[in-house]
Amino acid sequence: MKQYIIVVSLVLTAFSAGAQTSIDEVLRSIETNNKDLQANGQLTTAMKLETKLDNNLPDPSVSYTHQYGNKEGMGIQGELVASQSFDFPTAYAQRSKLSKTKSVTLDRQHADFRQQILLQAKTVCLDLVLLNQQKSLSDLRLQNARQLADLYEKRLSTGDANILETNKINLELLNAQNEARMNEAARVAKLQELATLNGGIAINFTDTAYAPVQDVLSFEDFKVEAMAANPQLLSLQSAQTAALRQINVNKAKGLPGFELGYRLNTATGGERFNGFLVGVSIPLFSNRNNVKQAKAQSLYADLQLESTSYTVESELHQLYNQSTALKTSMDEYSRVLNSQNNLALLNKAIQTGQISMIEYFVDVTTYYQSRQNYMQLQNEYQKVMAQLYKYKL
């Protein structure tokens, strides 16, 4: 029974170690574990609480004065004053609306920050897919180079090959080994970058194929959808609304403030006077130019939203055109490469002596370069599409 349990445990461990993690799973993990995202979330919470501080009532004031007479018989006199000041009620209503709008703005800024982190993580994953593909290609190239090196070593010993041909094969083997080594170093670096984004937790990501992406058919329809969901534009729209509300708040500051309280006077001999305290504060000087400043800030928010909208639309157009060009090139490479099996034919031809060493290296170099170009096009296309559809992250 113990042996059975051990065998099952080993099988499950091996299965878990070899399990692949999809890009969506990686993004969900990073959304949970990323330290920068967690820190920004706490900062957003703190700033949202800060927006409510301006709408608190001032602290109540309590004071007591104890006075002594300078002549005999004058006795002792005391005064107790308790008061509470507050603004005109309209000011509290306007500040409450401003606080809610600022909270929405902060939430949207956090959503924009989250999107940037997830886009960065997705880009790293897409680079890892490319590196995993290149690893498969470099492993194939290394395997072929080793087979040819062994073959020409045997031919050299029997006199069927010369030293120049053998040296060329050995150089090809050296280049293949170096390419595999550099590719693995780059892959490990990307995995480390992914672990850093995941809060220091390593992620096993070995995908060699990209997930299907939705093609952009109509730019105008896509532009409307993308800009309506863009968190940067949404936060600027909230900032625009907040700037308008700030004007109303600053206008409300021009209304008088009030103070209500209780006053008690005592004196030697049991005499006592008590009553209510009422005061009015007229902001003749403290609110000067506040409304002008708020209007200027509102104009700045309008212009900033307008400028950023133009920038976002221009970037979307550039990415759209880039994706179209990449898709065309990628499809052309795919049609040609999928209709050919050059590598197997080249290996057979060189081993049977149908082509010369020079012809082989010219053709095999073209084949590997074409494969590399195709994989690079796929990677660039996926990155462009990730940027286009980042609002869905």
Rank of each mutant, 00 (worst) to 15 (best):
Q3M: 11
V7C: 09
V7P: 02
V8R: 13
V11N: 07
L12S: 08
T13M: 13
A14L: 12
A17N: 14
G18T: 04
S22A: 01
D24P: 04
R28W: 12
T32I: 05
K35N: 10
Q38T: 11
Q38S: 11
N40P: 15
N40D: 14
L43M: 11
A46E: 15
A46T: 11
M47R: 15
E50V: 05
E50K: 07
N56L: 13
N56K: 09
H66D: 15
M74I: 09
L80I: 14
S85P: 01
S85Q: 10
Y92R: 06
K97C: 00
T105H: 04
D107F: 01
Q115C: 06
L118C: 06
Q120A: 10
V124G: 01
D127K: 07
L131R: 07
Q133I: 06
Q134V: 03
S136I: 10
L137N: 07
N144R: 14
N144W: 04
A145K: 05
Q147M: 15
L148T: 03
D150V: 13
Y152I: 06
T158K: 03
N162G: 09
L164Q: 12
I169R: 05
L171A: 02
L174V: 13
L174W: 11
N175I: 09
N175T: 11
E184V: 02
Q192P: 00
A195Y: 05
A195K: 02
L197K: 04
I201W: 06
N204A: 05
D221S: 11
K223L: 07
K223S: 14
M227T: 15
A229G: 00
L234C: 02
A243H: 00
N248V: 02
N250Y: 01
L255A: 07
G257Y: 01
F258I: 01
L260R: 10
L260M: 13
G261H: 04
Y262K: 00
G270Y: 04
G270F: 09
L284Q: 09
F285K: 09
S286E: 12
R288F: 07
V291F: 01
A301L: 00
Q304G: 00
S307H: 12
E313M: 09
Y320T: 04
T324E: 14
M330D: 08
D331P: 00
Y333H: 15
V336K: 12
L337T: 08
N341R: 12
A344S: 11
Q351R: 12
T352I: 07
Y360K: 04
F361M: 13
V362E: 14
Y368H: 08
Q369F: 05
M375N: 08
Q378R: 07
K390Y: 02
Y391E: 06
L393Q: 02
